[in-house]
Amino acid sequence: MTEHPLPQVFPNDFNALVVEPNEAGDILPSVRSISIHDLPEGNVTIKVAYSSLNYKDALACSPNGGIVKSYPFIPGIDAAGTVVASADERYQVGQSVLLTGYEFGVSHSGGLSEYVRVAGDWLVPLPAGASLRDAMAFGTAGLTAALSIDRLKNHGLKPEDGPILVTGASGGVGSLSVGILSKLGYEVVAATSKATFEPILKQLGAAKIISREHLLPEKQRPLNKQLWAGVVDVCGGNILASALASVNYGGAVAASGLTAGANLPTTVLPFILRGVALYGIDSVYASITQRQTLWNRLLTDWSSIVHTDGFVHEHTLQEVPALTTNMLQGASEGRRIIRLEE
């Protein structure tokens, strides 16, 4: 890639969360000082203001997460900040940008670092008037939620068609889906196992809250009573199978996660007897056109969602190791953003 000069104000070293083996051979995340020479190649360098914490980041900090292929490594699949050096004519020094997806935080050093260096093709300019903090309060979770709901709308689902079920509603994608669907006028039924998060879900616009156990019947059936016009699912496994069994004729499911497992223990019956559509949602390689369109909506029409009291929690880089442990244990709720600028 094209080399580019760094600004004179660029520090000799800065902090990043680095995952690497310790002396005992255990894979552990820790905050330490690195330099620009430790970052991979790229034609745009960014001073990161905020990152966010996602389940994939927690896996990257885990020795058995299956995300990181070589060490040392900097995780973080999201970042928002200011360009400090650029060899890409589309991006100028001082411009605010955001980044999610591609190989960022997976095979390319990620956003849990005070500075990152990436390909300009991966960037989205921050919409006018939007804040870097709000961008990361949405992050990959927000983009995935928006893609899921966009797919259901393109399927033809309208608010008058009936309620939309959102599974895993206490997590990032689930809770943001509740907020977006409510803004669009849909009746939202939120499924969660965390009673403590129910007040937040009500603030976000959930019309009804059901227990996760409601979707885990003792006997799984491929077809049940029709209840949902559509579903936003982040769980997979038995929960997705149960949700499919209760989708209305001609309805649709947008699936983006596997927190309840990668298997899908169902039959073809929901698809061939009720005409249900199952859409897979991937935000990693979404087109730049989709990204720009949906980020504009997230950070303008729907920005109030991430201002809901008690929904977004701000943390420091030093707090990330403990937060990832909680996330892997299922103890995390709402959105966790990481402030990197002083």
Results as ranks from 00 to 15, higher is better:
residue 194 K to W: 07
residue 261 G to S: 07
residue 24 A to F: 05
residue 162 G to M: 06
residue 43 N to P: 04
residue 224 N to L: 12
residue 86 S to G: 08
residue 76 G to E: 05
residue 307 H to D: 14
residue 153 K to H: 11
residue 2 T to A: 12
residue 29 P to V: 06
residue 200 I to D: 00
residue 218 E to C: 04
residue 208 K to T: 13
residue 26 D to T: 10
residue 78 D to N: 10
residue 323 L to D: 02
residue 244 L to A: 07
residue 332 S to H: 01
residue 117 R to D: 01
residue 247 V to F: 03
residue 190 A to I: 03
residue 124 V to D: 10
residue 3 E to D: 13
residue 72 P to V: 11
residue 77 I to A: 09
residue 138 F to Q: 02
residue 199 P to L: 13
residue 247 V to S: 01
residue 23 E to Q: 14
residue 243 A to R: 02
residue 237 G to N: 10
residue 42 G to W: 00
residue 254 A to W: 01
residue 307 H to Q: 15
residue 270 P to Y: 11
residue 173 V to M: 04
residue 211 S to R: 08
residue 284 V to W: 05
residue 25 G to M: 10
residue 281 I to Q: 01
residue 39 L to R: 01
residue 143 L to H: 02
residue 147 L to D: 06
residue 224 N to W: 05
residue 21 P to M: 07
residue 70 S to C: 07
residue 150 D to V: 06
residue 215 L to M: 13
residue 207 A to Y: 06
residue 182 S to M: 07
residue 275 G to I: 09
residue 7 P to Y: 10
residue 104 F to Q: 11
residue 85 A to M: 07
residue 203 Q to K: 15
residue 252 A to V: 07
residue 94 G to R: 13
residue 142 G to H: 04
residue 18 V to F: 05
residue 299 L to H: 05
residue 321 P to A: 10
residue 212 R to Q: 13
residue 218 E to K: 15
residue 166 V to R: 00
residue 287 S to A: 11
residue 65 G to N: 12
residue 267 T to W: 09
residue 316 T to I: 01
residue 51 S to P: 11
residue 156 G to I: 05
residue 35 S to K: 12
residue 7 P to H: 12
residue 281 I to L: 06
residue 222 P to T: 13
residue 138 F to W: 14
residue 90 R to A: 13
residue 194 K to A: 10
residue 213 E to Q: 15
residue 118 V to I: 14
residue 56 K to C: 06
residue 42 G to P: 03
residue 162 G to Q: 07
residue 57 D to P: 09
residue 276 V to S: 02
residue 195 A to E: 15
residue 149 I to C: 11
residue 208 K to E: 15
residue 26 D to W: 03
residue 195 A to L: 11
residue 12 N to S: 13
residue 292 Q to G: 04
residue 315 H to R: 12
residue 65 G to H: 13
residue 225 K to M: 08
residue 212 R to F: 04
residue 149 I to D: 05
residue 35 S to Y: 08
residue 313 H to L: 09
residue 11 P to M: 08
residue 184 L to D: 14
residue 63 P to S: 12
residue 173 V to K: 00
residue 239 I to W: 00
residue 215 L to F: 03
residue 194 K to M: 05
residue 43 N to R: 03
residue 193 S to D: 12
residue 312 V to F: 06
residue 109 S to I: 01
residue 181 L to M: 09
residue 287 S to V: 10
residue 209 I to R: 00
residue 107 S to L: 12
residue 93 V to F: 06
residue 298 L to F: 09
residue 151 R to D: 08
residue 154 N to H: 14
residue 151 R to A: 15
residue 35 S to N: 10
residue 52 S to G: 09
residue 118 V to L: 04
residue 133 R to D: 08
residue 119 A to Y: 03
residue 154 N to D: 14
residue 176 L to Y: 09
residue 279 Y to E: 10
residue 238 N to P: 06
residue 323 L to E: 02
residue 157 L to I: 15
residue 287 S to H: 13
residue 61 C to A: 13
residue 5 P to Y: 05
residue 47 K to T: 04
residue 271 F to S: 09
residue 217 P to R: 08
residue 221 R to E: 15
residue 302 W to V: 04
residue 33 S to M: 08
residue 260 A to M: 06
residue 38 D to F: 03
residue 34 I to Q: 02
residue 320 V to Y: 00
residue 287 S to G: 12
residue 112 L to K: 00
residue 253 V to R: 00
residue 298 L to I: 13
residue 79 A to R: 03
residue 16 A to I: 03
residue 56 K to I: 14
residue 341 E to V: 11
residue 74 I to E: 00
residue 95 Q to L: 05
residue 223 L to I: 15
residue 127 P to S: 10
